[in-house]
Design a protein around this nucleic acid. Structure first.
Length: 460
RNA sequence: GCUCGGUUGGUGUAGUCCGGCCAAUCAUUUCGGCCUUUCGAGCCGAUGACACGGGUUCAAAUCCCGUACCGAGCACCA
């Protein structure tokens, strides 16, 4: 994943199996945030976030390890690296911002130790006492000055096993300790946590530990969507009915691209290619499409789909056409498309009167408009040189009768059209390439084939 | 306000630490050609970038300073 090799990372090249911990993985948090409610109830990773090649070897819970954090806090206190502080948060912040130490900073270790044990025993209420790491109170970066390691929480932890604890570690302390104890070699985290490493190093220095390699990366934005890639924005559009759901093709979500038939692997490929830049990057959907095309092109059979077609009679030609299911795989067989009396073609494919077009898989026809009658395609029996040498356009078509009504859902809205009769053979989740239109994933197939089928447009 | 990052073609990326082999890599996009009964694929080709201004140097994408713009942190959230 780390395509950018940091100089120090080379040292780890020979490590057999680097242990990586991902901070700020895309775990969505649902429901209102209640700042007073104690450790947030963590949801299981929703299914839609499971991606190929992302494998979790082991899950550890901080709430099972509170005693471990206490032990390290005690050791840190003994090393002179931490002190208990009863400053009101705002007051401390003001002092800190002007580089001033609070009076508690110089307490002796004995007192600190006693007060910390009192924290552990739950003798304080929320807000009354914290344990701070002694960093550098006039460090030029105010973000690093004497940060909080433990604070009191009145609300019991939702897990019964941890419900009795009242003194809880902050993220930087907890994850810093766990990274070392679990042997993490590489930390991959967002740029919002850039200062975490700097804070945690103070703790590591007290303990004499070596800090893991850190790779930071910025936010990823996706082009091609009108809807902002924001959970709250999407949620409100879903709730108001402007989007049909989280998997609406207009929504910039994994659920949406999945429903369109884009493989998770294509998304992973594209994102891995973005690398780990610390600046925000735009993921071009065209890159995702290119990756997906590589995956699906070979196995997607071809069919015709005419969008908003015009019916035009056909005279003088064969009864049916037999184009291959896949141009690169003749062995898969051929389709059988009846012609009957008329075909549907897309409006923009209708030629000028007197001009020829090549109905793909069928043959060349001339568009003729007799003075008193209905304009029609008259079979000309030209051979393929008409296309190769004379520039006759090749277009797709479906029989005017017997074709299958299809709603094609796209990022730009729904399009209705008709697919050739054998489209009935498809089942939900199949991916088809509608020639000259693009790939699509079959979403639903009605009992009665005359009813509307629904397909999701994948990409060109 | 203080602090920390970042800025290479439309998009992403390599190169920046250790200046020269970088008139800048690769992918994608766009355009054109070949092939193909479309699209796609394949093959060939083209367009297109070192944010700006100074400085150091024989030599700067690379080092230094400044500016602009973007992002992030300065919480008893994770």
């Amino acid at each position: 994943m780390a395509s950018r090799q940091r100089p120090d990372a080379r040292r780890h090249r020979d490590v057999q199996r680097p242990l990586r911990r991902l901070d700020a993985v895309p775990v969505r948090r649902h429901g209102p945030r209640d700042e007073t409610a104690g450790p947030r109830r963590l949801r299981r990773h929703p299914r839609r976030h499971r991606l190929p090649r992302v494998r979790t070897d082991e899950v550890i819970r901080a709430s099972d390890r509170v005693e471990t954090y206490y032990d390290h806090a005690r050791e840190l206190v003994d090393l002179g690296g931490a002190y208990t502080c009863s400053c009101e948060a705002g007051a401390f912040s003001d002092m800190k911002n002007s580089g001033e130490a609070c009076p508690h900073r110089e307490k002796d270790v004995e007192t600190v130790r006693e007060e910390f044990e009192a924290m552990v025993a739950g003798e304080y209420e929320s807000g009354e006492m914290v344990l701070r790491v002694r960093t550098d109170i006039d460090h030029k970066n105010p973000a690093l000055r004497d940060f909080v390691a433990f604070r009191m929480i009145d609300t019991p932890h939702p897990r019964e096993e941890a419900a009795e604890y009242r003194a809880w570690p902050m993220l930087d302390f907890q994850s810093g300790i766990d990274d070392h104890l679990t042997g993490v070699t590489h930390i991959i985290r967002g740029i919002d946590l850039q200062d975490s490493a700097k804070r945690q190093r103070f703790v590591y220095d007290y303990f004499g530990w070596e800090y893991p390699e850190v790779v930071h990366w910025g936010k990823i934005q996706i082009d091609a969507y009108d809807v902002k890639m924001s959970t709250s924005t999407i949620r409100s559009l879903v709730e108001s009915g402007d989007l049909d759901g989280w998997d609406d093709p207009r929504a910039p979500t994994l659920a949406s691209v999945k429903r369109r038939g884009i493989r998770g692997e294509a998304v992973v490929d594209a994102i891995v290619e973005l690398g780990t830049s610390t600046s925000d990057v735009d993921l071009a959907m065209s890159t995702v499409y290119a990756k997906n095309r590589e995956l699906v092109d070979d196995e997607s059979d071809r069919r015709f789909l005419v969008r908003d077609g015009a019916a035009i009679p056909v005279e003088g030609g064969p009864d049916a056409a037999h184009p291959p299911l896949h141009p690169d795989h003749e062995d898969r067989g051929r389709r059988d498309i009846p012609v009957r009396d008329a075909v549907l073609v897309e409006l923009e494919d209708v030629p000028d009167v007197g001009e020829r077009v090549w109905l793909k898989g069928y043959g060349c026809v001339r568009y003729e408009d007799p003075v008193d009658g209905e304009a029609s395609f008259v079979f000309t029996d030209d051979d393929i040189d008409a296309v190769r040498e004379e520039g006759v356009p090749v277009i797709h078509w479906v029989p005017a009768a017997e074709s299958v009504p299809v709603t094609l859902r796209t990022m730009d809205g729904d399009v209705s059209g008709h697919a050739e009769p054998s489209f009935r053979d498809y089942a939900p989740d199949d991916v088809v390439q509608f020639e000259r239109v693009g790939f699509a994933r079959v979403d639903s197939v009605p009992e009665d084939a005359a009813e509307e089928h629904v397909a999701y447009y994948t990409h060109p």
